[in-house]
């Protein structure tokens, strides 16, 4: 898959997501976008900015304020030949749609023996770090990742955001697309026209030899910063960006851990019964003999997401990551 305009441009994640929607709608008339405030306003984060003006109200429209209805209607539209991309306004506002997602979005293909596919994308602005009030900062990935039948992805930079969203829209399976809110305004040089990653592939974001940091979504920049600081202190940290939580790229992750023999998982979500615990279990099961130390985790605490003034205690920071790295039993080396 390639994007339309070639060349390098400095773009934010919000801009590349918008461009991905626009390019997908141009490429395929079956792609429709809807949700709360996605029309004239362009979404509360402006991800759908200009789509109604460009493609008309049949292709991008505001809906009543009812998330179960939004996802349920998308199921019917996907059953009947369209590729809906719906926006849940915030992570915690997606919960009314949970029954639709778990009982129908995830199961329709299976309960019709493959006859009815649901090519739909549920976009969820997610996680914290933006000083949001309650119900605006949840890391809800574990709920979706635990549900067979869903793909779950979380980009960590503008280029991947574009590529993963195009891949999600092109997928014949439903995708829960988690957009780290705090990265919406992160800017980087994006090579438009470059090949984009498929769903299900992790990537080594930074090479390193001493230990591996495994992260996804909003935790990736934290891991990269930690690796930068560690390098100045003489320790070489490798950083793996999962990009896709489901399907999980065991191969890339395990190969990375085998190279260093030490690992720390960094995630914003609460640690108990989480994606981070799954990662530790998977890597331990597969790489036990290559490990020089137990895998450590730096995650959110098991508390309701704190208010803005206290959220920095909840979010994994560079210091906590480096402390965890320090705990990887280097004395046994």
């Amino acid at each position: 898959m390639t994007v339309t305009a070639p060349g390098h441009q400095k773009l934010t994640m919000a801009q590349t997501l918008n461009r991905a929607l626009r390019d997908a709608m141009t490429a395929d008339p079956a792609v429709v976008v809807f949700g709360e405030d996605v029309g004239a306003l362009g979404g509360v984060f402006r991800i759908t900015d200009g789509l109604t003006a460009e493609f008309g109200e049949d292709r991008c429209f505001d809906t009543p304020l009812a998330e179960s209805g939004i996802v349920g209607v998308a199921v019917g539209m996907a059953m009947n030949g369209l590729r809906p991309v719906v926006e849940m306004q915030f992570d915690a506002f997606a919960y009314p749609a949970f029954e639709q997602i778990v009982s129908h979005v995830a199961k329709m293909r299976n309960r019709t023996r493959g006859r009815v596919a649901l090519p739909m994308v549920i976009r969820v602005p997610y996680a914290g770090g933006i000083g949001g009030v309650e119900h605006h900062c949840d890391s809800s990935e574990a709920y979706y990742a635990h549900t067979p039948g869903l793909h779950v992805v979380a980009p960590a930079n503008p280029a991947d955001a574009y590529g993963l969203l195009r891949a999600a829209i092109a997928s014949d399976d439903p995708v829960v697309f988690l957009e780290p809110k705090k990265l919406y305004w992160s800017k980087e040089e994006v090579e438009l026209g470059a090949p984009v990653p498929g769903i299900g592939t992790a990537v080594v974001r930074r090479e390193g030899t001493d230990a591996t940091l495994i992260a996804y979504g909003p935790a990736v920049p934290v891991a990269l910063e930690a690796a930068e600081v560690a390098a100045a202190e003489g320790r070489s940290l490798q950083v793996v960006d999962l990009r896709s939580i489901v399907p999980f790229d065991d191969e890339t992750v395990c190969a990375a851990v085998r190279r260093t023999g030490r690992a720390v998982v960094v995630a914003e979500a609460s640690g108990f019964a989480s994606v981070s615990s799954e990662i530790v279990a998977r890597v331990t099961e597969r790489c036990f003999h290559a490990l020089a130390a137990p895998i450590r985790r730096v995650t959110g605490f098991d508390i309701p997401y704190p208010p803005p003034k206290l959220e920095h205690f909840q979010l994994p920071g560079v210091d906590r990551v480096l402390d965890a790295v320090d705990d990887l039993q280097w004395e046994d080396r």
Partner: peptide, 16 residues
């Protein structure tokens, strides 16, 4: 839970 699906099928048909 099937009722919103019915609306979606109908709306998709109407769009076409």
């Amino acid at each position: 839970t099937q009722l919103p699906h019915a609306v979606g099928v109908a709306h998709a048909a109407r769009l076409r």
